[in-house]
Design a protein around this nucleic acid. Structure first.
Length: 482
RNA sequence: GGCGCUAUCGUCUAAGGGUUAGGACAGGGCCCUCUCAAGGCUCAGAUCGGGGUUCGAAUCCCCGUAGCGCUACCA
């Protein structure tokens, strides 16, 4: 059975690049009957925080794509260090006693003519001397001994980037254990992938060149290799890798939740970055994504997430917004309702009777409104008149009531509707149209005026629908009170 | 600097030797209409540059260029 993992490090909020990696892993797992492991890569104690961890879990939970197992890398330190011991014993790793202060020099060296491969003299230290210096308390970093004497290199076939090869001569002796005794990412990640039985490592392309190192560790450990698949990166509108610091809250997953995105729409949007079902379909449910997803359909080119922070209208990619609107109007209302409920509880509009007695009414209102909304928050922002008598009359709407003959006509309409036995879309329309004819005005005058009087807005659903949604009693109040 | 990866409309993408280079978002216009959306129709808009290979190249090869990644005792 396939086992995949998503391994965020809790050193920041979950950003959309991470979410996309999670989604692709999840889609792969679900489409192949595999399992999804969430592994928290918290080996960097100084930079990891509880708050980041919470935010990541929160973001992932919101996606509604659930994982099957959860692990913490920090709890597995012993296993990592045992592996390090084994590598040292085998001669696949060696202790490097170069003082940490020279790290800066190493970095500047890296930008000079030749690439840095190892610190001078350290590979050659005998095991006896190495042990002696260790017992004497000399600090060291444990490095992998890249078998450069073998001459060839590491070859693997990436699920997405296909054949990849790198000469040993181009791989530096990377660190496995820091001088403070903590395993590095390379060691911990690889050992965990072995130990947790991960069969497919699907991650960002920024790890493509790390993969050679990981394969070296797998082989030195005598373990079988998982398959690797590297995803193209997500870039900001300026072409640089997406980052919170540079691009702001638009990269944070919880931001999309808070602004009113539907998880299924967000997942749909992200899945279309670097992948497509190749048949021109764009609006896809999670089930459809599962059935169409294949790693060999994934592109190798980075995708730009389009947004303009300076414009309030374009805080997110317009296509993401469009997809959300599409999902908003096409998913079953029952599926939409919980999100509206969450939104109303947040805005304080939720009433207990929506649970049962007024549930059908709520469904009818939501259904009538949703085709002209983009985000779930629009229900609070633009739907007030349906749920509360204290709504504002917009300027444009007010002008529709102030039009010549409108106010009187609407009051009269109120009186006539009071006398109507059967209050329905049809009866209201008949009454309104005949009244307009009698008074010699265009029906539009009363129609637009009624919308304004009933909803406070100049835009909205079909006005006759609005009459029945608002209900006879409140309609009469709002018309006669003009 | 070294080592890689990538390159189709503004953006997301389709076309993996033969198409008027297709679709979607965004933009323009028209239709529908009680408003606003939705929907329908429509316009504009791309193969990074240069060389090969081939009867034929967006597609294969090479060279440039650009972008990105890695080059940490970060992940």
């Amino acid at each position: 059975m396939n086992r995949v993992r998503f391994a965020p490090s809790p050193t920041g909020f979950l950003h959309i690049g991470g979410a996309r990696t999670y989604i692709f892993n999840w889609l792969f797992a679900r489409s192949t009957g595999g399992r999804m492991v969430l592994r928290i890569d918290d080996t960097d104690a100084e930079r990891s925080s509880e708050e980041s961890l919470r935010s990541i879990i929160e973001g992932l939970e919101w996606l509604e794509l659930h994982w099957d197992e959860q692990r913490y890398q920090s709890k597995r330190k012993r296993i990592h260090l045992e592996a390090a011991e084994a590598l040292l014993a085998k001669g696949s790793a060696y202790r490097d006693f170069t003082p940490e202060s020279t790290v800066e020099n190493t970095k500047t060296q890296a930008s000079s003519r030749t690439a840095w491969l190892c610190n001078p003299g350290m590979r050659e230290i005998s095991r006896e001397e190495s042990d002696r210096r260790t017992s004497a308390g000399d600090p060291f970093v444990l490095r992998f001994r890249v078998p450069r004497e073998r001459g060839d290199g590491v070859l693997f076939k990436d699920l997405i980037f296909k054949k990849q090869f790198r000469k040993f001569a181009d791989i530096e002796d990377f660190a496995l254990v820091r001088s403070n005794g903590d395993p590095t990412y390379h060691l911990a990640s690889t050992v965990d992938d072995c130990d947790l039985g991960i069969t497919h490592v699907i991650r960002g392309q920024d790890h493509l060149s790390n993969t050679y190192k990981h394969i070296l560790i797998f082989e030195a450990l005598g373990r079988g290799l998982p398959r690797f698949g590297h995803l193209p990166l997500l870039l900001g509108p300026d072409g640089s890798k997406l980052s919170k610091r540079k691009h702001g809250p638009v990269v944070s997953v919880t931001n999309y939740r808070d602004k009113g995105f539907l998880p299924c729409a967000f997942v749909n949007y992200l899945s279309l970055l670097g992948w497509s079902p190749k048949d021109n379909r764009e609006v896809l449910s999670v089930d459809e994504l599962i059935s169409f997803f294949k790693t060999d359909g994934v592109l190798r080119t980075n995708a730009v997430v389009q947004f303009d922070e300076s414009s309030g209208q374009k805080w997110a990619d317009p296509k993401a917004l469009w997809l959300n609107a599409q999902h908003l109007r096409s998913i079953p209302v029952e599926q939409l309702l919980p999100h509206v409920e969450t939104e109303f509880k947040r805005s304080g509009w939720w009433k207990p009777e929506y649970e049962a007695g007024r549930r059908d009414w709520l469904i009818a209102v939501v259904d009538a409104l949703r085709s002209r909304f983009t985000l779930i928050t629009d229900f609070s922002l633009r739907g007030k008149a349906y749920f509360d008598d204290a709504f504002n009359l917009q300027e444009k709407a007010a002008s529709n009531i102030d039009k010549e003959g409108a106010r009187e006509g609407l009051r009269e309409l109120g009186k006539r509707l009071d006398a109507v036995d059967n209050f329905s879309e049809e009866s209201v329309e008949t009454t309104l149209r005949s009244l307009a004819e009698e008074r010699g005005v265009k029906p539009g005058l009363l129609i637009n005026g009624a919308r304004a009087a009933l909803t406070g807005q100049s835009v909205g659903p079909s006005v006759f629908k609005v009459f029945t949604l608002i209900g006879r009693e409140r309609v009469l109040e709002r018309l006669t009170g003009l």
